[in-house]
Amino acid sequence: AKPHFNPFSSDGRFVLVPDKGLDRIFVFRYEAGRLTPAEPPFVATRETAGPRHLACHPSRPWVYCVNELDSTVTAYDYRADSGELRPRQIVSALPDSYTGNSRAAGIQIDAGGRFLYASNRGSDSIALLRIDPDNGRLAFVEAVS
């Protein structure tokens, strides 16, 4: 319905397609230049979250998706054999003191895999979240204007 982004997984075996209209992330196996639905073919996100963009951790089996409509980031475990994404955590990309309207947009992980950045339109900020190196869980650090 409304895919905005379709990156390859970090191992190049799958194409991941967040769809903010259907609240799903579709997973396609990529082999010999062809795409086929993975099994399972998608993971459902929280209703009305609006998954927009995602980032794969550079060295660990974790994928992070920024959800546009509720300004959150969902952490997923990634199974390299099947492409399956298993949700494990949802964190706000806004400080708990922010009460206005906002929409998240972009997401990026630093090259060392220690920090995640998510942009917010409305609060006009970049959220900084720390990635736990042992389990991939996120901790909100701050939002910078």
Rank of each mutant, 00 (worst) to 15 (best):
Y78T: 00
G21R: 03
A80S: 15
H53C: 04
P40C: 06
A80I: 02
L116D: 04
S71C: 14
R130V: 05
L94G: 02
Q89V: 02
I90R: 14
Y64F: 15
A143M: 07
P95F: 04
P87G: 09
P61F: 10
I131Q: 01
G100C: 12
P41A: 15
S92Y: 00
E31N: 06
Y98F: 15
I90L: 13
A143Q: 14
R137N: 13
G33K: 09
F28M: 11
V73L: 11
V17Y: 04
S102R: 04
D81Y: 00
N120L: 05
D23Q: 08
A104Q: 02
C56M: 15
S97E: 13
Y76S: 06
S92M: 00
C56E: 05
A105M: 04
V27N: 05
I25W: 01
Y30Q: 12
P41F: 09
K2H: 14
D81P: 00
P40A: 07
L128N: 02
D110H: 03
V66D: 09
P61L: 10
V91W: 04
N6G: 14
P133N: 02
A118D: 03
S119P: 04
P58T: 10
R137Y: 10
H4S: 10
L22E: 11
I109E: 06
G136Y: 11
A104D: 05
L85Y: 01
R86Q: 15
V17C: 12
I25Y: 00
A44D: 15
P18A: 00
V63H: 09
Y64D: 10
I90C: 13
Y64W: 11
G50L: 07
D134V: 04
S125A: 13
S102Q: 06
S102V: 08
V63D: 08
R88C: 09
S97F: 10
P58L: 11
P18M: 05
Y76C: 05
A143D: 09
V73H: 11
N67H: 14
A32F: 08
F26L: 12
G112E: 15
D23N: 12
I126W: 01
R29V: 12
V27S: 05
R86C: 13
E142C: 07
R13L: 07
R137H: 14
E39V: 11
S82K: 05
T99D: 13
R29A: 12
R79G: 02
R86W: 09
G33P: 03
R52P: 03
S9V: 02
S123D: 15
L85K: 03
P3Y: 11
V66F: 06
D11S: 02
A127R: 10
D124Q: 06
S102L: 05
D77Q: 14
